[in-house]
């Protein structure tokens, strides 16, 4: 188990390998479809400061306001591949060191991770209640009115949030390997 503290830097990220179990501690941001197109529409100066050295979490949480403060109730990962057109460019433009989500990402992101020094982390899809337990505090929320609860940027402080490296900064992807292995059996099963 490797501890990943945020903010982080390129050298730390380049040491991570596919298959590593990590625990993330520090401040990160949720962001999904609306957030990624918003970030790529133009340079968002404020977000450069906020996102530098951090990780963007593909997540649309269930939230609740308790005594005037937001609380994460359930917050597992959403499908990352929807951000494939944007992710590598968002890494570069905003200095992000990785994305956390589920299902893996494609060739453009794999290349982006390698070039820029970023990593893709995989959380357990559907395990929202457990993931929310790692969220210690909601520090802030941006674009809530415009994007709605699932799509807003939630700035959260997490403690020992568990994830697995499935795309590293060396061009390796667990998802590509599993696909290739399963393709052999797939072809056999349907007689190709």
């Amino acid at each position: 188990m490797t501890e990943l503290r945020l903010p982080t830097d390129e050298a730390t990220i380049r040491e991570l390998n596919v298959g590593d179990f990590v625990e993330i501690t520090g401040v990160m941001f949720t962001g999904r479809d609306s957030a990624h197109s918003f970030l790529m529409e133009k340079e968002r100066e404020k977000f450069k400061e906020l996102l530098e050295g951090r990780i963007i979490y593909h997540c649309g949480p269930v939230v609740k306001k308790v005594d005037g403060e937001w609380k994460f109730i359930s917050a597992g990962p959403t499908t990352s591949i929807r951000e494939e057109p944007f992710q590598a460019d968002v890494f570069k433009r905003y200095g992000l060191r990785g994305a956390l989500g589920k299902g893996g990402m494609g060739k453009k992101t794999i290349a982006g991770c390698k070039e820029f020094g970023a990593v893709y982390l995989h959380a357990v899809g559907g395990a929202g209640a457990l993931a929310a337990a790692s969220v210690k505090r909601v520090k802030n929320v941006y674009m809530l009115e415009e994007f709605g609860v699932p799509e807003a940027f939630w700035e959260i402080e997490v403690e020992r949030f568990p994830a697995v490296v499935t795309i590293d900064s060396k061009g390796r992807s667990l998802h590509e390997k599993v696909r290739a292995d399963s393709e052999v059996i797939y072809k056999k099963l349907i007689g190709m």
Binding site: S74, A127, L130
Partner: peptide, 16 residues
Amino acid sequence: DNVRIAGEQSLPMCQD
């Protein structure tokens, strides 16, 4: 573990 915690605390097991 997640389903157990969700059940005990009446939380949505998945945010979706």
